[in-house]
Amino acid sequence: MTAEALFESFADISEKYLKEAQEYRASPKKRRIWVVAACLAVVLAAIPLVRLAVDSMRGNTLVINQTDRIYGVDYSFMHKSYNKENFEEGLSRFEKNLGISYDEFISRFEPGAVSEGFTEYSAEYADTDHSYLLLVKTSDGGVAQISVTRSGFHFICPMFKPDDSEEESYIDGETVRVYEYEDILGGTEYIALFSHEGLHYDVRASVSTQAFEDLLCDIID
């Protein structure tokens, strides 16, 4: 098929979508510098108690391992926040350590969903483990923490070792481990651990199951 033929095949796209696209105009952009809290609060005890499987309409299978939780703080990390004062330096380090530019990384999310500030966490003992923590707004209006690294070191739950007996989820073809636990205020929080295109992710959020699935789909775009 030629590109011209494909271009012509778009001619019959629903008028509703065409009208919506034509009318779209982003509201004036406000500079969002969110404060990324440097709290390394959650370490999970990996004992699944109940499993809940949800087959979504998108063909994903979300299996949630319920687990107990232990709270603790890991002080062995150095961290540095990048915001409007030093953002250029942050962008450079982000690309150098992850092999992907920040703009490229955030293009998978809705415009304006990702905070413009982020935090870099590094292990004291080596210059190879760099995790980047970003805040992302979810489809239900909540906020998720996404930690991404190349090294395979899990940042949000560093002492957490997945167990082979746990169930796995399948999101857009990737294998993901999803955990649910009760947070310190009695709310429900989800954590997902997975790898995608050479990067390793920890995702943590107190949001609806649907919003969590939406978020994972965006990351595994």
């Binding site: 271009f7 778009f10 019959d12 065409l18 696209a21 809705e110």
Partner: peptide, 25 residues
């Protein structure tokens, strides 16, 4: 054309709008 329309319909709104503004408009 029908398959393309289905694909477009399944995209999140902003991605759909960006795609159409580029490849339709």
């Amino acid at each position: 054309a029908r398959a393309i329309d289905e694909f477009i319909g399944g995209l999140p709104k902003v991605k759909r709008d960006v795609f159409l503004c580029r490849y339709w408009y």
